[in-house]
Design a protein around this nucleic acid. Structure first.
Lengths: 221, 221
DNA sequence: TATAAAGAGTAACATTTGTTACACTCTCAA
DNA sequence: TTGAGAGTGTAACAAATGTTACTCTTTATA
């Protein structure tokens, strides 16, 4: 492992050169290599070390930042694996983690992580921020999923993309991806969008959405 | 505020007497009182202090401009409010927080929280644990919500309640509450349970569930 | 430019779930 | 004892969404 690889990890990015050097010099850790197809962790395994994926990619069923749920997903280096579960009461991996290619994992024992958190302010801020961002992501996702109808999801999505009174925006996803994000079937989403256009709620062309009746959208929530 | 009240807060419970005393003696904070119905925080407000609810209870809700309110949940003292959002990139309250009765809030500035985290190992462990547990809760909830069919939800619920090879368990909820938990209609759940019995998957009586075909349940996920 | 692949619109039909209504049992308290 | 209310089983019907299949347009690329 080189300093450069570590520097890209969300928990260390932004560290000053000397700080990172000191971090690595004092850090107690071991690196473990996994071959393609190997199990890096099994569901139920106790999490007693911080797993930093330094090289390679893994698949897991955990929820990831791209918005996919439950499906077997992939995560690419560099990033920590399940950092929140290290400190949870029930500190077990929630899913299997399997190497998709040759992987290198940096393992830092829990007590060592504690020590670094206390001694390295940058590391602590990054760790807290990473977990906090994840909480935020999960909260948003949960809000979206708890809306039952596709029309409601669309309304929520559109309103959250247009704070204040903007009259429209351009989607960062295509229709197929949006259907995935909502966890609904693509033709169902297309039908819903067509209906919302007929009802005069929105106007949709390409990836651009214009709001025609904001208050009606709000009532759909 | 007394030491006793603070002692019950998840972030401080378990602290030794002297540690807690030292904690309070060195802590920079202010307390703010709120009357019933007052806004403690508004959606979008920047979170630049840790809000500890010491006395009273609050509700959180989302508002839309048409005047409709969506209650999210109620929370009772003692506990922190939105501790994860203090360190998130987008550090804003996701919802309105409103006092349900006379409340007392302990406000600790962000930088002070950082200092205490670095200097008080117990506080750091508790803070990490609280946020981690919340992540876990959200993850579980999301997993359940992302299963589309009621049969799948039931299978997931039953399997998670019977680790290993236990053949049954007694539910801690009645059918109505379970339907709520799954976010489905009660008669729909009853129908699904009846179907699962017909198919020989489970046996259901009162609140007791016996598993008749474990592998078939697993296939439903 | 030609061609394939991806994205999107749409329609018929199947499936799942929600809604509403009613009956039955059980518990608890007047 | 009786009456009210909660919890449950069930059935008919309505509504929403999924599935499949086909077409057309746009985009990417050889």
């Amino acid at each position: 492992m080189t300093y450069k690889e570590l520097a890209l990890c969300p928990l260390c990015s932004g560290m000053s050169e000397e700080n990172r050097q000191k971090f690595l010099d004092t850090l107690v850790y071991k690196t473990v290599d996994f071959e393609k197809g190997e199990n890096i962790a099994r569901q139920g395994d106790t999490v007693n070390a911080l797993f930093l994926l330094i090289k390679g990619s893994v698949k897991t069923e955990m929820i990831n930042e791209s918005g996919q749920l439950m499906a077997i997903e992939t995560m690419k280096a560099p990033r920590p694996l399940a950092p929140a579960f290290l400190f949870a009461e029930k500190n077990q991996f929630p899913v299997d983690v399997i190497a998709l290619e040759k992987c290198e994992i940096l393992m830092i024992p829990k007590e060592e992580v504690m020590k670094q958190l206390a001694n390295n302010e940058h590391f602590m801020r990054s760790y807290l921020k990473f977990n906090s961002n994840r909480t935020q992501f999960l909260t948003d996702k949960l809000q979206l999923l708890s809306i039952k109808t596709i029309k409601g999801k669309m309304a929520f999505y559109i309103l959250s993309k247009t704070p204040g009174s903007e009259s429209g925006f351009e989607m960062d996803r295509n229709q197929t991806q949006l259907a995935d994000y909502f966890a609904v079937a693509r033709p169902s989403l297309a039908r819903t969008i067509a209906e919302m256009e007929e009802e005069g709620l929105i106007q949709y062309e390409k990836k651009k959405i214009r709001i025609l009746n904001r208050s009606a959208l709000q009532k759909l929530l």
